[in-house]
Design a protein around this nucleic acid. Structure first.
Lengths: 258, 258
DNA sequence: CGTTCCCTTGACACCGATCAACTCTGGTGG
DNA sequence: CCACCAGAGTTGATCGGTGTCAAGGGAACG
């Protein structure tokens, strides 16, 4: 992960599309969006617990292989991934994490998360909540515990969806499915058909996520583009025809809903 | 799932190798094996909560797509799978479940498990614990809550391992990895090299789990057999050379440990 | 004694990997 | 300022793993 850039270089006119400039003030809100009509106190309590977080650089390991510390860790800004590295340089991304996702639900019982590492794919801001603070907050704000369990369950369903994606779908529908998932996670289920959002990932990273080669990712991207479904360059994905994209991918986003 | 048998027919001299005859009295014990030195009271409490369970037939849906009921559900005997069905008949198994595995951790907060169905692959015995009983027991036996979270975390790690397996490994190492995982889950990490255990699955089921075609599963099985690594027929898997099998699969079973 | 269905085998097609070269942009250092 | 380099993206040629199609064997069952 060292010698390879993970997010595309800013092109031509600088940071005009710089994804880090999107405020994403509401990382904690996204976690709480999982719960309908939740107490406003819970939301503010979580915000206080999280604080500002700290910045980590591109490619940096947030949570290494080996036994993980206790406490809860959340991604506030930027992109990260759960990533398994092979000795020969091959990699597989098992999860893409966006602001509001839990990096670690360390309820003092988590076994070793040693099967993978969490790495920042862009510059990223993460927040740790100390285990004592977690247990205390769980007592004071019962909604919090529920939100954490909910988030874990949704991540579980998402990983299962990736198993299905990798096991059954050929490359174009596989990539289409990933894009549909990300669109829904980023914009919500009801995003209009011509949608544009920052996807600050290189084709190499997409390849790691999709179990493909970078060159094949490139060809599939061109294919989808030629079909008039999407456009993707310089870290910006445009979904041109969401309906046809979902049809191609056989996408059903219920697994992402609370 | 209707017209296809899921476990191989008993061959020649009847049920001599019938996997259902293995007592597996200790399904609950396996869940508790996840915790070192746990209270004996907790173990017995879980046993009482589970009771005898009820039998379901081969191919029967234990937990359908759609919103799941509350409560905890455990597999006591037999095999089951988390299975995603496509309209055109294709399938992908996202998890293989053996006695002691949790089918449903319904802590009254689980969202729709609607992305997949849980089906019995053999005749299976499952037990439900009503939600009130769960919350009551969680209060009385705090070790139980920890065991449930632990089991969930291990399943999560297992699904991630499947993502890696499907995304990165070619068919022979993929199958080898699955066999290593099952051997460890069934016999523990320290099983002697020539090991034999019941694997009451058809090649078609293996294909669903591995993202391969039945005919390719057949060929890969022959290949592994020709290499002197395993033998598999009539629902019995023999691991002839565990070391070389693990090497081939690049298997590291830490993700299965508590 | 025919049916069913799992397993097996062979021939062939194709998706995606591999290898290799080239462009382009941005960064670096003389 | 320019030469050079590094790394992302792109393209073409070729190879191989896996899917597909098709046929047949063998054990259990009615």
């Amino acid at each position: 992960m060292e010698a390879v850039a993970l997010s595309p270089r800013p092109r031509s006119m600088g940071g005009s599309a710089d994804p880090e400039n999107t405020p994403s003030t509401s990382a904690a809100d996204r976690l709480f969006g999982l719960l309908h009509g939740l107490d406003e106190g819970d939301r503010q309590a979580l915000g206080r617990l999280l604080g500002e977080g700290r910045w980590v650089g591109v490619g940096e390991v947030v949570l290494g292989e080996g036994r993980a510390p206790d406490g809860v860790c959340m991604l506030l800004e930027g992109w990260a991934c759960r990533c398994k590295d092979f000795r020969d340089g091959r990699r597989q991304i098992a999860a893409l994490l966006i602001p509001g996702d839990l990096i670690h639900h360390g309820d003092a019982t988590h076994p070793r998360a040693g099967d993978h590492a969490v790495r920042a794919l862009t510059r990223a801001r993460i927040a740790w909540i100390a285990p004592e603070a977690v247990t205390a907050a769980l007592g004071d704000y019962p909604g919090l515990a529920q939100a954490l369990r909910m988030a874990a369950a949704i991540e579980q369903a998402t990983v299962r969806a990736w198993v299905v994606n990798l096991g059954q779908r050929p490359a174009p529908e596989r990539m289409a499915h990933l894009f549909c998932e990300l669109a829904q996670r980023l914009n919500g289920a009801d995003s209009p058909s011509p949608a544009t959002f920052a996807l600050p990932l290189t084709q190499q990273v997409l390849a790691w996520a999709l179990g493909l080669t970078p060159v094949h990712v490139n060809r599939v991207l061109q294919h989808l583009r030629g079909e008039g479904l999407i456009d993707f360059h310089d870290g910006v994905l445009t979904i041109i025809d969401g309906d046809r994209l979902r049809t191609l991918a056989d996408f059903d986003g219920v697994y992402l809903n609370a």
